[in-house]
């Protein structure tokens, strides 16, 4: 099922300027067709990507977040992706406890010459997000849902720590 045939989902991409943004450009120059869901935010380096940008996107209702930087050792700023790798890995591992499907967030490395690889990454990730469908929103969508939540909270759902 090609992603284009269904309603677009909201996928946010954070790409470093030197490798992955260039890789996405290369894919464009080579006319490698990709699903249109992804919107790319350009940052200088994957080291600039605060994991909280990803959380913010997810909290705001993004259905998927894709981060890509230079391959380890190839960082334009020498060390940015090494820091990014630790930060992003921690976020990815942390998400399950919040109930947010960690597979909605992915990080990878794509160099400026890897247009084909970028096409593959975007296509695969978009396909995956479409498989999960729209992400549940943390804030209720309607007034009725808000009220239901308020009632539930007032009664106090069973908490594993406090009985």
């Amino acid at each position: 099922m090609p992603a284009q045939d269904v309603r677009e989902l909201r996928i946010v991409g954070f790409l470093c300027n030197w490798c992955s943004y260039g890789g996405a450009d290369t894919a464009g120059v080579s006319r490698f067709t990709q699903p249109t869901d992804l919107r790319i935010i350009r940052v200088p380096c994957s080291g600039r990507i605060d994991p909280l940008f990803i959380v913010r996107s997810l909290m705001n209702g993004a259905d998927g977040v894709l981060v890509s930087g230079c391959h380890p050792r190839d960082c334009h700023y020498a060390e940015g992706n090494f820091y990014a790798r630790r930060r992003l890995e921690m976020l990815k591992r942390f998400l399950p406890i919040t109930g947010i499907d960690a597979r909605r967030f992915e990080y990878t490395w794509v160099s400026a010459s890897e247009g084909q690889r970028w096409q593959h990454v975007v296509t695969e990730f978009t396909r995956r997000v479409h498989e999960f469908g729209p992400a549940p929103t943390f804030n209720p969508a309607s007034e009725a849902d808000w009220n239901a939540l308020a009632v539930q909270a007032g009664q106090g759902q069973a908490c594993p720590c406090h009985g």
Binding site: V12, R56, N60
Partner: peptide, 10 residues
């Protein structure tokens, strides 16, 4: 980020 995914306000 907010331009792409507008926050849903209470």
């Amino acid at each position: 980020v907010n331009a792409l995914c507008p926050p849903k306000m209470f």
